[in-house]
Amino acid sequence: MGIIKVENIRVFAHHGCLKEETKIGSDYRVDLKIKANLQPSAASDKLGDTVDYVLLNRIIKEEMQIPSYLLETVAKRILNRIFNEDHLVQKATVCVSKINPPIGGDVEKVTIKMTQRRNK
C-alpha cells in the first residue's frame, strides 16, 4: 500500500448559502490524500499501473465548478467520482477549504475533511 497526495489545489468557485457567495465566488483550497497499492507501478514504471494524479486534479477542478450550498456536498461528489473513475483507489481523504469565509470575523479559512473507503 502507498499514499499519493495532491495538495494545495487552488480553485475559484461559487459555493455557499449566501446569494453573494454564489454570485461573486471566492477562493478555495483542496487537498487530497489517497491510498492504493503502488507496488505494481513501482515495478513496471507504467502510468496504467498506478493512480493518475492528473485525473485526480481534473476531477477536483470539475466538481469544484458545480455550485453547492455546502462544502460537504462538494467533498462527497469529489470522493464519489474518484472511486467511480479509478478502481485502484482504496481509501481517499479530501479537505475542502474556503479562504476568507464571510462569517463575521478575521478567519483565514474554514475546512471540511471527509474520508471514504472502497466497498469490497
Rank of each mutant, 00 (worst) to 15 (best):
E62A: 09
E20W: 02
D31L: 03
G16D: 10
L32Q: 07
I59F: 07
K46S: 15
S26V: 00
I66E: 08
F83S: 04
I59A: 10
R81K: 13
Y69P: 00
S44Y: 11
V30C: 09
I9D: 04
I66L: 10
S44L: 13
A36L: 11
I112E: 04
R77N: 06
R29T: 13
H14M: 00
I60T: 05
G104Y: 02
H14Q: 08
P101A: 04
E72W: 00
K46C: 14
R81T: 05
R81G: 12
T73W: 00
Y69A: 07
G104D: 15
G2E: 15
L18I: 07
E85I: 01
V89P: 03
T73Y: 00
Q39L: 15
R10V: 01
Q116D: 10
Y28V: 06
I3R: 14
S97V: 02
P102T: 08
G48V: 08
I112T: 12
K98R: 13
E72G: 03
I60R: 03
Q39F: 14
L79D: 06
R10C: 04
T50G: 11
E7P: 04
S26R: 04
L70S: 04
Q65S: 11
D52C: 07
S41V: 07
A75N: 07
K98M: 03
I59Q: 07
A36G: 10
L55V: 15
A43V: 13
I59Y: 08
K33F: 05
I103C: 09
I78W: 06
S41K: 10
Q39W: 10
G25S: 09
K91D: 09
M114E: 13
I4V: 13
E63I: 01
V74R: 01
N8A: 15
G2F: 14
V51M: 09
